[in-house]
């Protein structure tokens, strides 16, 4: 009898040891996305937020490199967060929004429409960057299900060791440094800063379908429904960039969708002069993305619209926000200085 008791305890202890060992190995082999491929760190950083947000930006690099929540707060007192990711496609954005709505209800959601050009999952690598850091829940399960490319395995998203075990022979210092710690955030409430300057020149032409894929438009409709159900005002934007090309037919299609659903749609490419964006100085990669100078100009301009059209509260002077944004602004300015010195 006594021996049987010891056996049960032994099995339980063995299970605990095995679970602990597997967890440790799993954490060790998973990519850390802190010093390299930092875009993969963005999804997880959202969960460290201590204050809520009146505005959530969702979309791809045209939101997380183009809008500065620091500028929005310091200029207008608008609290915001960017739930964006590298090649975050329409269905990723839907589930990022659904995930966020479990814990907060912003007044406005801003969705950048560029990703609607993709009607199918594009690459496992980008799925991993967007989904690895997502907290477990129905939103993550839904996102995995619709995002997988051919040959991918659902379970490997839930148990990353199934996918990354081969990295055990290719570990780097980054893997050891961030084995049990996420490290400092790489973003500023979802914004990723670049300070370089590389003026726009010519861009390649491309073949394109004048009609946006039905799949992505269906996900846009689902995003609109989700916002409607939760009382969130949805704003559609096309962020200013000259490549990938945003074609006139796509623009017309989004404008028609917005009109039919009673949504605001701003094609900001057309507003470059009003915003003050100069593609000779405000881009770090020939007009594909904005640098911090461009992002701050765009945020100032768009913040005025958000404030006047959606009556957002000026949260400056509220202790919790002031403390949060003061620390963020200091880190932001230090990073700007550091990167500028490196250019």
């Amino acid at each position: 009898m006594k021996r049987k008791g010891f056996t049960v305890i032994g099995i339980l202890l063995s299970c605990i040891v095995c679970f602990g060992a597997l967890t440790a190995v799993s954490r060790l082999t998973a990519p850390k996305y802190h010093d390299t491929l930092i875009d993969g760190h963005l999804t997880g950083e959202y969960y460290d937020e201590t204050t809520d947000h009146d505005v959530l930006f969702i979309g791809d690099c045209e939101v997380f490199e183009h809008f500065s929540p620091v500028t929005l707060f310091n200029e207008y007192g608008i609290t915001s967060y960017i739930r964006g990711g590298a090649q975050q496609l329409a269905w990723h954005s839907y589930y990022m929004l659904e995930d966020a709505l479990k814990t907060e209800t912003p007044k406005v959601a801003v969705f950048n429409v560029l990703a609607l050009k993709y009607g199918e999952p594009q690459s496992e690598a980008y799925n991993r960057l967007n989904l690895d850091g997502m907290r477990f829940g129905t939103a993550k399960l839904g996102a995995i299900r619709v995002s997988m490319t051919e040959g991918e395995d659902f379970m490997s998203y839930l148990f990353p060791l199934l996918r990354y075990h081969d990295r055990i022979t290719a570990l780097t210092k980054e893997d050891l440094t961030y084995w049990f710690s996420k490290g400092d955030p790489v973003s500023f409430k979802g914004y990723v800063m670049h300070t370089g300057v590389d003026p726009a020149t010519e861009v390649p032409q491309e073949n394109y379908d004048p009609k946006l894929p039905e799949t992505s438009m269906a996900w846009l409709a689902k995003i609109a429904d989700l916002c409607e159900q939760n009382g969130v005002a949805l704003v559609l934007i096309k962020s200013p960039s000259i490549y990938p090309v945003w074609h006139a037919e796509w623009d017309d299609e989004i404008a028609a969708f917005a009109k039919a659903r009673g949504l605001r749609y701003d094609n900001l490419i057309a507003e470059n002069d009003l915003i003050g964006i100069d593609m000779n100085t405000d881009t770090y990669d020939q007009g594909q993305h904005l640098n911090v100078s461009g992002a701050e100009k765009l945020s100032r301009w768009f913040g005025a619209i958000l404030q006047s059209e959606y009556g957002l509260t000026d949260h400056r002077g509220e202790a919790a926000y002031d403390a949060d944004y003061a620390a963020l602004t200091e880190r932001y300015e230090n990073e700007k200085q550091r990167l500028s010195e490196g250019n």
Binding site: G40, E65, G85, A86, A125, Y126
Partner: peptide, 12 residues
């Protein structure tokens, strides 16, 4: 060539 353009992705 007259000019050149390097395509950037978000992450890679």
């Amino acid at each position: 060539y007259r000019s050149t353009f390097t395509g950037q992705s978000c992450a890679f």
